[in-house]
């Protein structure tokens, strides 16, 4: 009797397991999901890297409603801090043109955007129930060191409204200046504080803010080539340079190679890193020399000014043996001179 009961139990378990297996393997027919009958929206941020004052942050905002329910009426982006001049929303909805090598092709769907204060609006001029508009927010000076959020809102003809908020995004404290032209014996005086390059006359007029001298020397006995040297450096590193009166500051320089910041070197194959505020905050240049010689294209120099007000990263985009160079700079103002 006991064995019989055990046998029955095991059999039941086996049958149960087989039933479960059969159910698990049963193929369900695919059913199209039922679309929401409400106005829908979604946003993505298209730009990567640090958000720098003067640069754009690009968003793509998609909105749609069932054609039977209505059509799109307007799209609005509201920034927590008003964007700088140049902030706009594209009035085109883009699609990937499969007949043109996948080119991004825009179709005008609304009137040109109107920006008023913190709000940018596109009003639809065509009958459409789905579109993706791109919003370009130019980061204003006012936002430096703060955070910015963008609230996107879509309206449809049936009176529905839907919103989504992106952010908050940290806006960096650092500045950026691209493609500064340097030339040996002419535009050779660099001011980190002014993020500018001066010739001798300009340097004399801004003597107190000149941090570096660019020079190029071609020697057969050593590899001097392109160099950044603080005016106060040993004259061995400033051969043939007659400094303008008052140009006498020192600096700390750290030479690096292949640190290709994507903002400073957007076309470099390996320029997929970003230098951000935190890099300037954490780097120590204590004990570094006041000169960096034999610099090449792709080289970079971290700099700290003598007064401790700024740290900068200067990247060599291009050099020529004629004694010229193109450099780009990220500069960070240290809080309280530290």
């Amino acid at each position: 009797m006991q064995y019989r009961s055990k046998y029955t139990g095991v059999t039941s378990l086996l049958i149960g397991a087989l039933s479960l297996l059969a159910l698990a393997c049963k193929k369900d027919d695919y059913k199209l999901p039922t679309p929401s009958d409400k106005l829908q929206n979604q946003a993505i941020k298209r730009t990567l890297g640090p958000n720098i004052v003067g640069q754009q942050i690009e968003f793509a905002y998609a909105m749609a409603i069932l054609p039977g329910k209505g059509k799109l009426v307007s799209c609005t982006a509201e920034a927590s801090i008003a964007g700088a001049a140049g902030t706009y929303m594209d009035n085109k909805s883009y699609f990937t043109n499969v007949n043109n090598s996948g080119a991004d092709t825009g179709v005008v769907v609304g009137s040109p955007s109107v920006t008023s204060g913190t709000t940018t609006t596109v009003t639809y001029t065509v009958d459409t129930s789905a579109a993706t508009l791109r919003y370009y927010y130019v980061i204003p000076e006012e936002a430096r060191g703060k955070t910015v959020s963008i609230k996107f809102t879509a309206k449809s003809s049936n009176g529905e409204t839907i919103s989504t908020t992106m952010g908050p995004y940290n806006i960096t404290r650092m500045d950026m200046k691209l493609n500064m032209k340097l030339s040996n014996k002419n535009m050779m005086y660099i001011s980190i504080g002014d993020t500018a390059v001066y010739d001798s006359a300009g340097a004399a007029a801004h003597a107190g803010s000149i941090d570096l001298v660019y020079l190029y020397r071609s020697y057969t006995t050593s590899a001097f080539n392109h160099a950044l040297v603080a005016p106060a450096a040993d004259t061995t590193y400033l051969p043939g340079v007659n400094l303008p009166p008052g140009v006498n500051r020192t600096a700390k320089l750290l030479k690096v190679f292949n640190l290709q910041d994507h903002n400073l070197a957007p076309t470099e194959q390996y320029g997929n890193t970003f230098i951000d505020d935190v890099d300037f905050q954490s780097i120590s240049l204590t004990g570094e020399p006041n000169f960096a010689i034999n610099l090449k294209q792709g080289a970079g120099v971290w700099v700290e000014t003598a007064d401790g007000k700024y740290r900068a990263y200067i990247y060599f985009n291009a050099v020529a043996n004629a004694g010229t160079a193109t450099v780009s700079m990220k500069r960070y103002a240290l809080a309280n001179g530290k």
Binding site: T221, S222, A227, Y237, G287, E288, P289, A292, I293, N294
Partner: peptide
């Protein structure tokens, strides 16, 4: 080492 080398680092 090359001229201009920072011997401290």
């Amino acid at each position: 080492v090359q001229f201009g080398t920072d011997l401290k680092n």
